[in-house]
Every structure is written in structure tokens, then in C-alpha cells.
Design a protein around this nucleic acid. Structure first.
Length: 561
RNA sequence: UGACCCAUGGUGUAACGGUAGCACUCCGGAUUUUGGUUCCGUCAGUCAAGGUUCGAAUCCUUGUGGGUCAACCA
């Protein structure tokens, strides 16, 4: 075994240094902290893989902690879907399912401690007044007239806020830091606000709720999180994160920021994803075109492929946009190893073998997966009438076309070599069916015909094939970064052809017993998975990703539009 | 006209003062009863200018370019 040194990302480097210096007693604790106000998407997947992955790697633990400090937007519905998505991705938090709301009593105590030590005060200003005196990034803010109010008075007011004596918006608790700080977050940030809202867990116990900045770091600290990994936009919050930890003299978790994931043609904004759903661009949160975990699951992406993707995109602080092709590569890589091969014709063209006995059905063995010898063989029916892919026949083929054409021969995969003898068209010139003759001695496995053909095509037996629906998906937008243009709304780049429904595709009979989540490779076409819309009478398949198609690429190059 | 952060092939990411590597993409070739897979190969990079050093992608300075911050959101 070669001892090539594994390259670490900058977070792993920090962790290894901390481990080496025994900073946390050899322990690594991370956390994944979603707010239960929406569905998880591909960006969260990166964070999940990072947080759980790094803890796993160093023998540590990862807590699942719901950041539920804003009751008006949060709901248990999201808690459930988030948990399901994380589990599906292949990670486990054992019994460490925490909620920021579990810490409300402790947070309240700490707030009181802050007031008592003169580090926090109740401000009677309105939201507008507070915003107005905040200053701008280049101008210092002004101190609130309530800033110097006696501690006892703040304490009394804060307790009465908690007791529900004041209406929403009338008072807040603020940290007393520095209104002239160049860092806006240090200009006396709000710690608590009044909200008479029903909380999904604490019900009506509270009418004051802590802000993110007075909850997140504290929650990390309570859980003794050693490395609190978050995205770049929280970089400016770090001084405040550290300030509270110091002021409270509590366990010093360390916040480390990394660049969030951006992927071409994919959105990772809850707001925008919500608009796609609400405005009917997609059928729901789990539409296979969505970048949500649930959408990708329905699309047929596997947990392993998403984990591989998260691994390959890397961790750094630089803004990035990952090419969509990398995601596609990761799915194909996984599915190629595990997906059973299946004969399916998406755009059927009837083929009649004129010299094959009518009414005869032959069962031919074919491999389930050439990449996996253990996958074994299955038998597929063959008969006089078949369906082949319409674009596997061309009346007037270009030079390097290896498929069927008048007078040309091809191999029918796992069956016989056929030669095209006739083309039957309707009055308008549309090809109705093609006639071929087959060579009995060219049977797959014991071909004694001596005939050499360049092309092999897939097929299904007309009388045995199952009729099914196939949904083909393409990128949701016509441009890689639909949010880039400030002049145009991202929905203007919606790809009208992102969904194409094929009502009557033909698939070999064996897939009748397919189960949900099972992936297939439709030979020469792509990877497909069963959609939950399927019923016993009617199968519905989703395209996960096409196979690479070098012929299409060649053809496109030689005849540029 | 502030603070903080970032800058390596087309894309993403390594190299921690000593030969700029890996993956994806692209292109070419071999194999192939999937124009798939696999295998081989080619092209291609340190934002700029100074400085420190025997030696700089790496350290320093100044520019340039990009990102974030002015919610009682997270």
C-alpha cells in the first residue's frame, strides 16, 4: 500500500491541530443546526456530509439541533422531513436530537445575568428607531436613550416582558457593546424580542424569544460543540459569537466558516424554491427537478452519489459554482455499479422479423449488470414483432451511423443480427414499421454466422412489453446561474422543456415487480427510477440522468445547426 | 469610501519556503453484443506590481477583482 498523504481541507487541518494539542481532550463534537422552516436542499447536504463526516472521521459525534427560535415560521412538519432526509442520506445522531428551544430557560437566565452585569439593557425604542440609530457600514451608530437606564430597571422590564405585560414590538433586550463598532453586528445587537406566538414545542410558555445571535453560540456551548461549522455569511457574526461566550464565561465553542455550495442550474434559496412551488413551475417540494433532498430522492439520486458529490466539491472559503456535470458524474458512477439493466424503448418503432415464426416466443438470457458478475442473468421474451427506438433507424444515415438503415445490419442486444429489408410508411411519409430478416445462426452466445456488425441496439417484444409512462427531466433553467442577472427575475430563465412526459414507452415485462427507490439502467438510454405515482396498473419512471451519449455529441458537431 | 473574508487550468480542490498535483469537463486513441463502462493519452493554471529569501503559489506591502454586513430572520 502506497502511503500517499491524504490531503486535508482547512477544517480538518484545524481539527487535527486541536487534536494534536489536546485542546478539547481529544473530542470532536459538531452539530447540524437546521431551522425547521423549510425543506433541506443540496446545499444542506454538503453541510450535513461535512458535519457528520468530519466527526465520524475523528471518532467524534454530531448533534442534530433544530434552531427553533422564531416560532412564527417554524413547524414540526419540517422537523419530520428534515430528520427523514438526514437519515436517508445515511447519517445518524443517535439520541442527540436537540432543540434551541430546550435551552430557553437557560438562555433566559443568562440574559438576566447579562443585565445584572451591565452588559445588556432593555430598549423601549421601536424597530424603526433602532434601525435608524444603527448607522451604516461606513457611519457609526448612535446610542439609544435607554442605554444608560439603571440595571434594576432593565431587569424589572425584562421580567415583565417575559410575563407578557408588553405588546409585541414595544421593547427588546439589547447587548451593550459598541454603537461605533465597524462591525454592524456589534452595535448593541438585539438579544430578545417579544412575540406572542405559539411555538411548535414550547407552546405558549414563552412570549419572548432569543435572537439567533443569542441562541446559536450558546446552544453550541451548552452542547460542548468543539467545532461549529457554518457558512461564510456568518463570518461577521463571529466576533459577537465570541463576545457572548466570553461575557457569559461559558464553554468556548469555535465557529469556523466555509463557503456554501452553489451548483449550476440549481437553486439553494428557500425563498426561491418556495416561489417555484407556489407559482407552479414545479409540482411540489419533491418535484424531481428540485434541488431539495426530497426532490433528488424522487429523481433517483442515491445517498451514496450525493455523499460522493459532497466529498468531491471540497471545503474551502472561496465562492464557488460547481458544474452540473460533476453531479451527473457522481450519480452515474454509483448507478453504473448497482442499477439493473433493462430493455426499454422510449419512442417505439415497430419492427417485424419477416422470417421469424409467427406466434413464437423465445426466452433469451441477458446479463443484469455487466459491471457486477453477481447480479446474474435474466430471461427476456423475443418474438416476431418487436419495438425498437425510433432514432435507431435512419432511412438516410450519415457515414458513421452504426445503427439500422435500409439494407444495413445490426445486432439486437442479447438476440440476433437483423438486416433491414423494408420500410413501411403512411400517406404522409411517416415511418410506420420496418421489416427485417434475422439470421438464426447469429444467436447471442453461440453466433456461428460469421457476420460482423458495428452496432447493437435494444428492443422489446411487442406482445410482451409493458406500457408505461416515462418522465424525462432536464435542467430547470436555461442558464447555469439564473439568479445572476439583477435585471431579470430568475423565473424568466425557467426551462419550459425541463419536463417531458412520454405516455407510452415500452419496457420489458420483468420490471412489473419493481419497487420504489429501485434504480434501473434503461439500456443505452439512462438511469431511471420508479416514481411514487406508479400504480399496479401503470408504472411511471423518472429519468435520473442520461447515459453519456458520444454519438449525439459527434452528430451535433458534424451538423451544426 | 468602513470592517471582515477570498483570489491556483474551463470548473472545483491540493501543495504549509524547495519539481504546481488530483478530480470533473473538453479533445484524441484502445477495448466493447450498451456510441455505456473500463483503459491510455493531449491541452490547460499560481490576479498584478514591488519587497524578503539561495529559492515564493506559499511570507510582507500596495493595488486590482470578487463576496459578506445596516431583519425585533436564521
Amino acid at each position: 500500500m502506497a502511503d500517499e498523504k491524504e490531503s486535508l481541507n482547512f477544517i480538518e487541518q484545524i481539527i487535527e491541530e486541536d487534536l494534536a494539542s489536546n485542546k478539547h481532550g481529544g473530542v470532536v463534537i459538531t452539530r447540524f443546526p437546521p431551522e425547521p422552516n423549510g425543506y433541506l436542499h443540496i446545499g444542506h447536504a454538503k453541510s450535513i456530509c461535512l458535519n457528520f463526516g468530519v466527526a465520524q472521521k475523528y471518532g467524534g459525534r454530531t448533534n442534530l439541533r433544530f434552531d427553533d427560535t422564531n416560532p412564527v415560521t417554524e413547524d414540526t412538519e419540517y422537523v419530520d422531513s428534515i430528520k427523514a432526509d438526514i437519515r436517508w442520506l445515511g447519517f445518524d445522531w443517535d439520541d442527540r436530537e436537540y432543540y434551541a428551544s430546550d435551552y430557553f430557560p437557560q438562555l433566559y437566565e443568562w440574559a438576566i445575568k447579562m443585565i445584572e452585569s451591565g452588559k445588556a439593557y432593555v430598549d423601549d425604542s421601536t424597530a424603526e428607531e433602532i434601525a435608524g440609530s444603527k448607522g451604516t457600514p461606513t457611519e457609526p451608530g448612535k446610542e439609544s436613550p435607554y442605554r444608560q437606564r439603571p440595571e434594576e430597571e432593565s431587569l424589572d422590564l425584562f421580567k415583565r416582558m417575559r410575563a407578557g405585560e408588553f405588546p409585541e414590538g414595544t421593547r427588546v433586550l439589547r447587548a451593550k457593546i459598541d454603537m461605533t463598532s465597524p462591525n454592524m453586528h456589534m452595535r448593541d445587537p438585539v438579544m430578545y424580542r417579544i412575540k406572542f406566538a405559539h411555538h411548535h414545542r414550547t407552546g405558549d410558555t414563552w412570549c419572548i424569544y432569543p435572537m439567533y445571535d443569542f441562541a446559536h453560540g450558546q446552544s453550541d456551548s451548552i452542547e460542548k460543540v468543539t467545532h461549529s461549522l457554518c457558512s461564510l455569511e456568518f463570518e461577521n457574526h463571529r466576533p459577537l459569537y465570541d463576545w457572548f461566550i466570553q461575557a457569559l464565561d461559558i464553554y468556548p465553542s469555535r465557529q469556523i466558516e466555509f463557503a456554501r455550495l452553489n451548483v449550476e442550474y440549481m437553486l439553494t434559496s428557500k425563498r426561491k424554491l418556495l416561489r417555484l412551488v407556489n407559482e407552479g413551475f414545479v409540482r411540489g417540494w419533491d418535484d424531481p427537478r428540485m434541488s431539495t433532498i426530497s426532490g433528488m430522492r424522487r429523481r433517483g439520486y442515491t445517498p451514496a452519489s450525493i455523499r460522493a458529490f459532497a466529498d468531491r466539491v471540497g471545503i474551502a472559503k472561496r465562492e464557488n459554482v460547481i458544474e452540473f456535470s460533476l453531479l451527473e458524474y457522481c450519480v452515474r458512477e454509483d448507478l453504473n455499479k448497482i442499477a439493473s439493466r433493462v430493455m426499454a424503448v422510449l419512442d417505439p418503432l415497430k419492427m417485424v422479423i419477416t422470417n421469424y415464426p409467427a406466434g413464437q416466443t423465445e426466452y433469451l438470457p441477458t446479463e443484469n449488470n455487466p459491471e457486477d458478475p453477481d447480479a446474474g442473468l435474466r430471461e427476456i421474451p423475443f418474438g416476431k414483432e418487436l419495438y425498437i427506438e425510433r432514432d435507431d433507424f435512419l432511412e438516410d444515415p450519415p457515414k458513421k451511423y452504426f445503427r439500422l438503415a435500409p439494407g444495413k445490419m445490426v445486432r439486437l442486444k442479447s438476440a440476433y443480427i437483423v438486416e433491414c429489408t423494408d420500410v413501411i410508411k403512411d400517406a404522409s411519409g411517416i415511418i410506420q414499421e420496418i421489416h427485417v430478416r434475422y439470421f438464426p445462426e447469429s444467436k447471442s452466445g453461440n453466433d456461428t454466422s460469421g457476420i460482423k456488425v458495428k452496432g447493437t441496439i435494444h428492443w422489446v417484444a411487442a406482445t410482451k412489453a409493458l406500457d408505461c409512462e416515462v418522465r424525462l427531466y432536464d435542467r430547470l433553467f436555461t442558464v447555469p446561474n439564473p439568479s445572476d442577472d439583477p435585471q431579470r427575475d430568475f423565473t424568466e430563465f425557467y426551462n419550459q422543456e425541463s419536463l417531458q412526459v412520454i405516455k407510452h414507452a415500452k419496457v420489458e415485462p420483468g420490471v412489473a415487480t419493481a419497487s420504489l427507490r429501485q434504480s434501473f439502467q434503461f439500456l443505452r438510454k439512462g438511469y431511471f427510477t420508479l416514481d411514487p405515482d406508479s400504480s399496479a396498473e401503470r408504472l411511471v419512471f423518472n429519468l435520473t440522468v442520461t447515459l453519456k451519449d458520444t454519438w449525439a455529441k459527434m452528430a451535433a458537431k458534424e451538423q451544426p445547426a
